[in-house]
């Protein structure tokens, strides 16, 4: 038996012996019982945090199957003066004024209901909490904190209007300039 082994077997013997070592005596590893437990609990907590984080990440889908944000709204010439409800199924209103053309996304900036267009009052009114927007999409009454979004517009070489709902603007003067407003007479 080497001296090392002898030493360690001696310390084992003292650990199991009923005689308590004096409180000041440190175990041979150099780590106190408290420190060892702390490290153990720390490792357990770290493990738990990693698992919790991973499961949390699990809830964010990596692939979603949702319709494209870009669509062809047909020939620009087809939009007469006023609000067109033709593309409401894509949640878009196309508005033609004397100055030009823009679109509004038909999703209330409050909590996402679909407002209705009231031709007689020239207002969009939301059925959920009463937000009211004017023809420009500006919030004028009710709780919505922002104006309606205007989506990115582009005219294809065929003369078709291409609407991209993934690029949007809601404040002046940007929303009154291309690509969110097309100055065509």
């Amino acid at each position: 038996m080497s001296e090392d082994q002898l030493k360690s077997s001696a310390s084992v013997a003292s650990a199991v012996s009923p005689v308590k070592p004096p409180p000041s005596a440190k175990p041979s590893s150099g780590m106190s019982r408290g420190q060892f437990l702390l490290a153990g609990y720390g490792a357990l907590a770290a493990f738990g945090a990693v698992i919790a984080g991973s499961v949390g990440r699990f809830f964010f889908p990596n692939v979603i199957y949702e319709p494209s944000a870009i669509f062809n709204a047909g020939s620009v010439k087809d939009f007469n003066s006023g609000v067109s409800l033709k593309w409401i199924n894509k949640q878009v209103w196309v508005v033609r004024t004397s100055k030009g053309l823009y679109a509004l996304i038909a999703i209330c900036r409050h909590l996402g209901c679909t407002p209705n267009w009231f031709q007689d009052q020239q207002l969009f009114k939301c059925p959920c909490h009463g937000s009211v927007y004017n023809l420009q999409g500006t919030i004028i009454a009710g709780p919505a904190p922002r104006n309606l979004w205007r989506p990115h517009l582009e005219i294809a070489t065929t003369g078709d209007l291409i609407i991209d709902k993934s690029i949007v603007q809601d404040s002046s003067p940007m929303r009154d300039e291309p690509p969110f407003f097309l100055p065509i007479s």
């Binding site: 409401i88 949640q91 409050h110 909590l111 679909t114 059925p127 959920c128 009710g142 709780p143 904190p145």
Partner: peptide, 27 residues
């Protein structure tokens, strides 16, 4: 129908108080 909201749209009764609060305060 994701393109048309009933008018008016009302929550179930126990959330209507909350809905009413949403008229006055930011979400």
């Amino acid at each position: 129908n994701p393109h048309a909201t009933p008018n008016p749209e009302k929550a179930p009764w126990y959330f209507v108080g909350l809905q009413e609060m949403l008229v006055y305060f930011d979400p």
